[in-house]
Nucleic acid binder design. Sequence first.
DNA 1: GCGACAG
DNA 2: ATCTTGTCGC
Length: 231
Amino acid sequence: MAVQEELRPLVDLAGPGPSAPATVAGLDVAYAEGGDLLAAAVTVLDARTLAVVDSAVGVGRPAFGYVPGLFAFRELPALLAALDRLTTTPDLLVCDGHGLAHPRRFGLACHLGVITGLPAIGVAKTPLVGVWDQPSAERGSWSSLRDGGEVVGRVLRTRDGVKPVFVSVGHRMSLENATAQVLALTPRYRLPETTRTADRLCRDALAEAEQARWLAGQSGHQEVGRRSRKP
DNA sequence: GCGACAG
DNA sequence: ATCTTGTCGC
């Protein structure tokens, strides 16, 4: 929590950010039942075609328990490790969670942005803080997300008649530009293509890891057939 | 004090 | 986040 207060001033809220990024990255994490295993994924898409041009995944252990508001500490290590494995540097990070729409104005998107130095925004499926009016039903309509008298994000409708998403600035991006980028990433579904591709990737990686762990448990890390042999 | 609470 | 049955629609 002190770390968030310390890094918060480093968030760059000046420029509008890239208006036409060439590549956009999606980041997401999947958890196993017991909560002792996770898979983090980053997918980089061509901003124009939305095709995946690079990606990285990694499995590991949660670095922290889940505590609303301290969420970043849980996923950050695994996500940073995945980012390091990319062969390209994306022009924008689209995080699965909030940016400024956070109790201390320093959500996961801000944290990732400050640490990597890259423009970042947060796109969350549910609110964490703030109040808002329901945006109208058409895709593209939005309303301000306000908390403590200040605008911390937008409630954006990405599909006609579908539950809106919560968009907030993370680092080096304006709220206006963040909104435009999210709309560009949602030509068909409620969630950005970046989030969807990263979600699929980490889920698959987690399933593989769980299967591997299960197989290891069956053989007890010994040669197959060894334990069925009589002493 | 009580409830709410990104993933 | 994850679990989980049926349901509605392209």
